[in-house]
Design a protein around this nucleic acid. Structure first.
Lengths: 180, 180
DNA sequence: TAACGATACGGAGCAGTGTTCCGTTTAGCA
DNA sequence: TGCTAAACGGAACACTGCTCCGTATCGTTA
């Protein structure tokens, strides 16, 4: 939540290196890539990774934080710009789905199980936005925001270069069902 | 797909013991329980488990095979008995969801990742049933059967004693969206 | 009933995870 | 230039699923 202290210069450098390496490895091998691989790619030892990011999840968060923030701030913007609250909600969900689907394995990791930190972060950040959109669309009686987010997240699992599974279509159906 | 050979008596006994132990452990600790725990509970060594069930997934399949078969055969029955194909589909999906949701962690395991055998078995067995129901309901243009099954399975992930996440509701919305 | 070969068993051991620990190195200040 | 807190590296740990092979047991046959 804050900057703490911008300590030593080499530490700063390593953190950036680590973030870049992690991002690269995530693209290449998915979010489940072994920590060792990331350390190797960055040319640092295990200890270094764990000093900067106490847990695998923290590293993932750090890598994707920027995009999560982007998605969060897109909510109000869409609400202001779109034709209707419904449309805004649909567009925003699309954004979220795009984000998840293009990150190999990210959706799978949203499901708790040792990734409590990650899970909590995503939800903390995005659920309020979702709540706002649902309220504007007068759909609060149909689903709770948290529920919808988790549902959409779940639907995105395994939707990577899988021609037999189109998460977007299913999410679309879910949203359609929302206003029936 | 056949009975092979009903070999030695102690082997038969152990297989039953193993199945019972696994079922018990699954209820207590979820489907992700370590193989060692199951072996311990059954009072046998690791080797014994792996002789009977070449892989963790095979053990899970064996434990739940009966219920999967039940679910599969419920499809045609519902189609014959229900008021409409739609109703039959909805009821059948309910059955499937109940099955997944009451088995701690089962849904999570449906998502491939080393459980290809399990995944394949479930799908092989249930997708045709789903296809039949979708055809009867004239919904084949809206989703492919495989897609729907996977989607529903995904929605059930993490719906265990979780007051904030009602998989049944979301699946309901999805099905509603199907006929919009 | 005794012996013997096929069958099944047990559990140590391997390989691959995430994470911790601590001796070593280094940045940056006096 | 020295010195100390900060940072580093990677061996080691705990925990997985799974394999391997020496040992025990079954059940058949003489």
């Amino acid at each position: 939540m804050s900057e703490s202290k911008p300590k030593r210069a080499d530490a700063r450098r390593n953190e950036k290196t680590l973030l870049d390496a992690a991002a690269a490895v995530f693209v290449a091998s998915g979010v489940d890539a072994p920590v060792r691989d990331i350390a190797a790619k960055a040319g640092v030892g295990m200890g270094t990774i764990y000093r900067h990011f106490p847990t695998r999840a923290d590293l993932i968060i750090a890598v994707y934080r920027h995009q999560v923030e982007e998605c969060a701030s897109a909510g109000p913007a869409l609400l202001a710009a779109a034709d209707s609250p419904h449309a805004a909600l649909a567009r925003w969900i699309d954004l979220f789905v795009d984000f998840l689907v293009t990150k190999h394995g990210l959706a799978g990791v949203l499901q708790g199980d040792g990734f409590d930190t990650l899970h909590a972060y995503f939800l903390e950040r995005l659920v309020p936005v979702c709540a706002q959109l649902l309220e504007a669309a007068e759909l609060t009686s149909r689903v709770r925001p948290l529920e919808l987010m988790r549902g959409v997240g779940n639907l995105c699992v395994g939707a990577e270069d899988n021609p037999d599974y189109d998460a977007r279509r299913l999410v679309g159906l879910l949203i359609e069902g929302l206003r029936a």
